[in-house]
Design a protein around this nucleic acid. Structure first.
Lengths: 364, 364
DNA sequence: TGTCTTATTGCATTCGAATGCAAATGTCAT
DNA sequence: ATGACATTTGCATTCGAATGCAATAAGACA
């Protein structure tokens, strides 16, 4: 380190006026060449110790106001900012939170990701994003979580009990978004699918519908299965059994195919319950285009969750809207709480959905 | 994992005796208590030095196959994985890439984000996500970039020349997505708006349309302005001037409002050029609902970029589809190339869009 | 058997910031 | 002036992995 030896010597001399030479030892044409600026560089330039520089950037550290100001000025001039890696390594806090989301969820509800990152950013937390395409990608994502020592995680993707246990072992606070763990206790934020679906189905029944069909989600989807079961249970209470169920993958296309499959089973279908809005939209388009139905007169179709396009005037899907803003806010604040206080209670928060009457179904 | 707690105590005690007490001061019931497993833990347990452990995880490092196997086995048993912070700090490589995207872009084209992260993840690179709501948030995002010493960045958000210069200064390779820098040389991947828009307008003209309206984007949107200018230029070539232009913000609602505003200016409008699909969809709905028009007979509406809903059967927007998969692949591979080779040439790649005929406009 | 390679391994240092502790400085009351 | 005390500051160590260099062991060859 010839560099340090040299300038250190100059620093002694500069006190009385030789600052000019010591301050710009690099040719003016090279813009910030070489390695990045460190706290040592700032310390040397400001004539203080590295510790002092560090204290200037820590809230509530013991440092004289005058010193602080001088150091910050030098830091600004040199373009210094603390190295997050070094900070994380020594302090154990990275201000990083991992977000796990399936690419499907992201495609259908981009606002979830946007809202979560926004709220995290507002709290000065950075987001490490993992968009998962397959179940199998979860493990490698988790491996990366541990390596990066994130302070916490929010998952809008399905995690197995073993995977949940890993979070506990690694002491990484986790909040599940729109999922709840089967056996394990895990913090979660979700929308009350059961109550919502029951309300929706109840209203369809009240309007006199008797021939139903259900477009469910994949078997491994927690929310999908929850809604399917709730709908079937409510129908059974009304004495309606043997309701045909087809499965989709939450996409527009699978909704259209789902409707077609149901129509094939029962041409006199009166009401179709789709477990999410995207499939409801696909079903609506298929009902109109492929079967010439007019909604809601010839057929009722309901969805769930209130995604963006559901409110477009071509659809006006009758649905239960999830309070995304409140849910994301809850998820983030729960997570932050659990990060700050290691033994904050594990809480499950359930939000009620809001019935959107729309124009795609007759309700009673 | 009771397994770990149990076995650890035994092995710790057997070392020499004195170390045993220090090695397991924790009650056996707490699973993996205290600090995380480090390379030193693995080294001790495997009877090698920390350097040896490190070499086992580095590709092509000098280590005996037998040793490697033994160490990896111990590492697996203890649940060890290298600490990314320490690795990044010492090696200068974090395998982290920042993604800058506006929340609006993410909302309208969620597949862009999903594709980018997928391709980066495939290359074993993690994603630090920044979703920006306002122009002003760019600076603080950049500040975080430098702090986290990301290896590179992809931006689908607008950056000023000054901001671009910062990337050069900090030596962080950058690839712009669907944006090109005005004055600065910067790597970029984009879709040829000019050619696409000219083709679209040319076809509208060929079909006999003469009374046009344009729903443009915000003034600070690069792509929006590019398309607006291209459309106006092409119209002017055909001798059509004084075309009314209204501005939207790329959203569905603003498309609907845009159409309404245009209709107010010219009730005999024949063709509406929207600079993106989302606004085209809004315009289509407004044309049908608020003005009772039938497309494409009474009115032609075209969009640009080919977002998901544009292909839904209610819309079938006539548009230019961007080759998102090829574009994201290009962006990622360009970035990786520039990360590996610091002086790889700065390249601008322009992809041609594909005309989607749709059903929302009469083309000639 | 002795010398020369070559493959492994360990030692010691490094990355950059945070922090406990002690030293230095300053303030105030007596 | 002096002791009691609070405020600032610096020193030295720490976090966990990577790596140049030297030491060692193993094998090759005469």
């Amino acid at each position: 380190m010839a560099r340090q030896g040299r300038t250190r010597k100059e620093t002694g001399a500069e006190e009385t006026g030789a600052t000019g030479a010591a301050a710009s030892p690099r040719p003016a044409n090279t813009p910030r060449t070489g390695r990045r600026v460190t706290s040592y560089d700032v310390a040397r330039e400001a004539g203080v110790s590295q510790s002092a520089v560090s204290r200037c950037f820590a809230a509530g550290a013991s440092i004289a106001p005058a010193t602080r100001e001088r150091v910050l000025e030098v830091a600004r001039r040199l373009g210094y900012a603390p190295n997050a890696l070094a900070q994380g390594l020594i302090s154990g806090r990275t201000n990083l939170v991992a977000l796990l989301i399936t690419s499907l969820t992201n495609r259908n509800y981009p606002e979830v990701l946007a809202e979560l990152t926004r709220r995290l950013t507002d709290r000065d937390i950075r987001v490490l994003l993992f968009t998962l395409n397959a179940e199998s990608e979860v493990d490698s994502a988790l491996d990366q979580l541990w390596r990066h020592s994130v302070d916490g995680a929010i998952s809008a993707a399905h995690l197995s009990d073993d995977q949940l246990r890993l979070f506990a072992q690694h002491r990484v606070p986790l909040v599940l978004y729109n999922r709840v763990a089967d056996g394990m206790p895990a913090a979660s934020v979700s929308c009350d699918s059961v109550a919502g679906e029951r309300e929706l189905v109840g209203r369809l029944l009240a309007a006199g519908h008797r021939r139903f069909g259900i477009v469910a989600g994949p078997e491994d989807s927690y929310v999908g299965e929850d809604r399917r079961r709730a709908a079937l249970a409510r129908l059974e209470e009304a004495g309606i059994t043997g309701v045909p169920v087809v499965r989709g993958d939450f996409s527009y296309e699978s909704g259209a195919e789902g409707l077609q499959a149901l129509m094939a089973q029962d041409g006199k279908l009166e009401a179709v319950i789709c477990v999410n809005d995207m499939m409801a939209i696909g079903a609506i388009d298929a009902a109109r285009d492929r079967f010439g139905r007019t909604l809601p007169d010839d057929l009722s179709i309901v969805g769930f969750d209130g995604s963006g396009p559901a409110s477009w005037s071509s659809y006006r899907v009758t649905s239960i809207r999830q309070p995304v803003r409140r849910m994301t806010e809850a998820a983030v604040s729960m997570l932050v709480e659990r990060i700050e206080d290691e033994k904050a209670t594990v809480e499950r928060r359930l939000f009620a959905g809001e019935l959107i009457e729309g124009r795609s179904a007759r309700l009673g």
